[in-house]
Amino acid sequence: MPTFGDLKLSRRDMLMGTAATLALGNAPNTASAQDAGVSGGAVALAAGTPSLAKVSFTVNGAAHDLNLDTRTTLLDALREHLHLTGSKKGCDQGQCGACTVIVEGRRIASCLSLAVMHQGDAITTIEGLGTPDNMHPMQAAFVKHDGYQCGYCTPGQICSAVAMLDEIKAGMPSHVTADLEATPQLTNAELRERMSGNICRCGAYSNIAEAITEVAGSPA
């Protein structure tokens, strides 16, 4: 059996190859009715060498020029290329919020966005909000209120919470806002609804809510 060294295959190449083989067998059957729209059009299985594309953006105030495999998500660019490993990969399909970062002042799921889509954007990650010696008020509040257990969802929770408070200031309503045209108040129900894209498997929600409430400056 050839060793990985002989083949010069990284673990990732190996995994990618396996995934491609699986896809070959399953592709025609996996798309559900909901997927039909995206499955239409010219698509083929990945083959050959990856294509590279240049992209420049600012992360936490520092400019970066990257030459990336076009399939790189914003999350992977941050973690694997810029080594900003604070942003976490949870579900990798936009359902858990662990990868939440702030792009141009707005929170997005960085796993559902290609890095090349962010030419010229200003991106803020948990590392840009504060450092252990100089924490952002939201980070300090999470520490004070024990807003985590394992900590995996925490960077996403904090980035999401920071952007969420800005959304409330801007008057953006949520599902629980009684009057969609009135200025929303940060009630506990509003806070929980607005943070519903961030899942915490440890269930630290009550402490997370207390931390955010303290930063927002209103009682829970």
Binding site: A20, T70, Q93, L114
Partner: peptide, 22 residues
């Protein structure tokens, strides 16, 4: 936005999808 396209082209659904031009 790519929020339908990216999760579709993941393991468990369409898997690896190569589109020559995006």
């Amino acid at each position: 936005g790519a929020t339908d396209l990216l999760p579709w082209a993941r393991e468990g659904r369409a898997g690896d999808v190569h589109v020559p031009l995006l």
